[in-house]
Write a protein that binds this DNA or RNA. Structure first.
Lengths: 208, 208
DNA sequence: CGTAAACTTGATCGAACGACAAAGAAGTCC
DNA sequence: GGACTTCTTTGTCGTTCGATCAAGTTTACG
């Protein structure tokens, strides 16, 4: 694995983080290659040599984003002992991440490309698939709660609850981008969790 | 107010509706003037003559959008007898509008430009202001419920509840754009309304 | 009927877009 | 040290962006 030829003068990881900040702030179509090259401190040709096309770069950026900002909410889902605690901690971890003072507000997965030109359809589908994974992860955590015995199968259905909390997460991102602060998001989370007991403590056989 | 000179050959309202469909589907930056001119059936110069710049056109389109798709949810808030019924009906009217088979799914106000290039900052701020109005309208409706006597001031605060249901609406738009159907949104709404009684029936003085 | 006013078309503006080719610069290997 | 490999820089490709101009067309007013 010897390094043949001239070694590159920039750190791809550092450059990727610069690109992340820009894509996060401006979205996919709102970020030009000139912007990227300037922020990353390299020429656009170097971007192509190292990362491929703009689309390839964005996909690598999203992978980095998932490994960093996406991890705390996922860990909350994974490590909390009960389904309820897991959802609550996931929402709070999300709120933490999308209101950090050192990064753009709101979730990049949701804000980067909800709409766009037809030629960027692949990017939107890519992000939509990742959002679907988010829904699936939440659903799986609820199912685990049933298996673990800390959650009785609710009348409304696990799918509905999973989609509901996914909806809340996605709404929180818009709120954060619109300037809502951490405390205001906490209030929203309190409201969202108020639904939990009603939804899950009700008997699974409908009350007439 | 006589019409001097050659009258225009196209109907501005019809053209505006065509532009609405395109902006709704692709967002602000994702829609080019070529796309618009082709869809509206006129040359781009006619767009400038009749509507001004692309930004002016978009603002006129948003006004039309508010008068059409925005009206059912607003009417629900206005006409329902109680705050609870108003919120519930507003959510359902929103779900109706954002899953109509004859229009793009999701709310244009939320999806058209959450992020973008720096030169389009004014557009994003314009939309953010409209979203703020949405929050204010919901808040006012809750306050009216207190005045009317059908809602006792909740412990968590009217602002929190208003922001919560705003968050749900915004999340629903992402869900709809991602392919969720009307029935699935109805389930989410059921979950969101499950929080209502918990939030509002609790005593306004905190339980130790 | 003549003329002024408004609209439409087609061409075109400079700038920016994503993408890439070529050549120079800097390192490793034999 | 010479050959080879790889990276970086420079420049530019063709296209499209939003926006506008000049010319021609069509209408209503006087």
């Amino acid at each position: 694995m010897a390094a043949r030829g001239r070694p590159r003068t920039f750190d791809p990881d550092v450059a990727l983080r610069k690109a992340l900040a820009l894509f996060w702030e401006r979205g996919y179509e709102g970020t030009s290659l000139n912007d990227l090259a300037q922020a990353m401190g390299i020429a656009s040709a170097s971007i192509y040599a190292c990362f491929g096309s703009k689309e390839d770069l964005f996909r690598k950026v999203m992978a980095l984003y998932g490994r960093t900002s996406g991890e705390p909410p996922r860990r909350a889902l994974r490590e909390q002992p009960t389904a309820r605690a897991a959802i609550h901690a996931m929402l709070r971890a999300t709120a933490d991440e999308i209101t950090r003072p050192d990064t753009p507000h709101g979730c990049m997965l949701i804000l980067a490309a909800p709409t766009g030109a037809v030629e960027n359809h692949a990017i939107r589908e890519f992000l939509a698939d990742l959002r679907f994974d988010m829904l699936s992860t939440i659903k799986d955590r609820l199912a685990r709660g049933v298996t673990d015995g800390d959650l009785t199968p609710p009348a409304v259905g696990l799918d509905a609850i999973a989609r509901y909390y996914t909806t809340v997460v996605q709404g929180l991102s818009v709120q954060a981008r619109d300037g809502a602060n951490r405390a205001e998001l906490e209030e929203v989370i309190t409201c969202a969790m108020a639904a939990w007991d009603t939804l899950t403590s009700a008997p699974s056989h409908p009350v007439s």
